[in-house]
Design a protein around this nucleic acid. Structure first.
Length: 425
RNA sequence: GGUGAAGUGGGUGAGUGGCUGAAACCACCGGUUUGCUAAACCGACGUACUCUGCAAGGGGUACCGCGGGUUCGAAUCCCGCCUUCACCGCCA
């Protein structure tokens, strides 16, 4: 969530930022509300503390009187303390109410977009940050979309997934399963080579963890929920991995912290069905390797570029055509300050598929999770970043479509050591 | 799932009602000494909120797993919860 003191000291900047997210006057009023509640709360805090200080002072006097055997004097002070206690409790109630109200409001305010974020409302307004510099691949007229290739070569089976679970749960088999595992291995090794520490986190997280990275309260419907144990299935490794450092004060010398993790990701994504979500285009369970960085605020955009370069290199090695988009204010996630999406061209469907989203959250997540670092005498919030490197299902979709030949589906060179086969026939 | 024990600062650990934000030791940091390193000695050494000050700083409040309660006063007493450890049961 936004830092309160930014609203306190730079309200205009906050309002400007939220306008970029297309906030109207009604929503912007929330900011004013926080601003005034904050003033109120601090006044109450001062009053409350003065009352408590007086109570403490009287209490120690009472103790002293008791020791001297002056019972009557002590009794007199006791009445005073009782009165103070009552008025103090009232102050505390009002203070706590204001505090809760501020918190509830802050949960509704998204992150401020970075200066470079373009204005805009829909995905059409996203800026093409880096276009594909070559002509897009063109397949013969009889080329098949990946879901047809899947049944032709027995790569994955969605109907079988329906039998076992429900729609949106693919069953990979044979070389399809191996391809999936090969990609995971390849992505993890690449991340390790780039200096990321590998993490295997839990796939279920508690409420606090889900709140810290911003899935709760605003995106509750996105996650599968295990009611009996009050746990959530992770929608991305970002959630458990970033939370490793919740409530932590790091030393500046430890930054940047680079972490990677492979996990299956679970997303309910209730909503549209149809051609756009056929095959692997959108599923409820998919595999993903995530990269996370915890960076010094002065270095976080440098870290972001590094992550863009890393993801680019993966796609280059897989020989897939891709482009990078800079998301506009209207399309950016609630918690992000700047997001780049990677889209791969899926040649049979003739459309771009999002395979990675790389974001800098600045202090938005770290403020929620109290992730800080110490530099000299100073303690401040760290910046958190993450990105997919990469999301598998759609990579597989593009790989199958783009690499289909009359002889079978050709595996890119970089992947062959992992698949241990060169072609799927 | 059952029974028992325990949860104090970065670590070990003292503290059973006021003099304790918390002894001591270790680690870390600053300094003295030193050819270098080590040792020794001295000093500093939690976090959050808040008030005050241009600042350096100073004041107040809260926090000893979490939440409630008793009391003028709680790390210390009472209740609930969580976690960890041990043993038993079950188990990939």
């Amino acid at each position: 969530m936004l830092q309160l003191d930014v609203i306190r000291n730079e309200k205009d900047r906050v309002v400007e930022g939220l306008k970029k997210r297309n906030w109207g006057p009604e929503q912007l009023a929330l900011v004013d509300e926080v601003f005034h509640l904050d003033i109120q709360r601090r006044a109450l805090k001062t009053e409350m503390d003065q009352s408590l200080a007086e109570q403490n002072r009287l209490s120690s006097e009472i103790g002293a009187f008791f020791k001297q055997g002056k019972k009557e004097e002590a009794e007199g002070l006791r009445a005073q303390v009782a009165a103070l206690k009552e008025s103090g409790a009232e102050l505390k109630n009002r203070h706590d109410e204001a505090e809760t109200a501020i918190r509830d409001l802050l949960f509704q305010i998204p992150n401020l977009p970075h200066a470079s974020v373009p204005y805009g409302k829909t995905p059409e307004d996203n800026e093409v940050y880096r276009a594909w510099p070559h002509p897009l691949p063109e397949l013969p007229a009889d080329a098949l979309p990946h879901w047809e290739l899947a049944s032709k070569y027995q790569i994955f089976d969605l109907e079988l997934g329906v039998k076992l679970t429900g729609s949106g749960f693919p069953v990979f088999r044979g070389k399809g399963a191996k391809l999936e595992r090969a990609l995971i291995g390849f992505f993890l090794d690449q991340a390790a080579d780039a200096g990321y520490e590998e993490i295997m986190p839990p796939l279920l997280v508690n409420e606090e963890t889900a709140r810290a990275t911003g899935q709760l309260p605003d995106k509750e419907a996105q996650m599968y929920y295990v009611e009996r144990d009050n746990l959530y299935l992770i929608p991305t490794a970002e959630v458990p991995v970033t939370n490793i450092y919740r409530d932590t004060i790091l030393d500046a010398s430890e930054l940047p912290l680079k972490l990677t993790g492979y996990t299956p990701c679970f997303r309910r994504e209730a909503g549209s069905y149809g051609a756009h979500v056929r095959g692997l285009n959108r599923v409820h369970q998919f595999d993903k390797v995530e990269i996370v960085q915890i960076a010094h605020p002065d270095k976080s955009y440098e870290a972001l570029s590094g992550m863009l370069a890393h993801v680019s290199s993966l796609l280059d090695q897989l020989e897939l055509p891709y482009r990078i988009l800079r998301l506009c204010g209207g399309d950016m996630g609630f918690t992000s300050a700047l997001t780049f999406d990677f889209e791969v061209y899926s040649a049979a469907q003739k459309r771009w598929l999002e395979v990675s989203s790389v974001s800098n959250f600045e202090t938005f997540q770290s403020n929620r999770m109290k992730l800080r670092f110490r530099e000299g005498k100073d303690i401040q919030l760290a910046h958190t970043l993450n990105g997919s490197a990469l999301a598998l299902a759609r990579i597989v979709a593009a790989l199958l479509e783009n690499n289909q030949t009359p002889d079978g589906i050709v595996i890119p060179k970089a992947l062959q050591p992992y698949t241990r086969f060169e072609i799927i026939r």
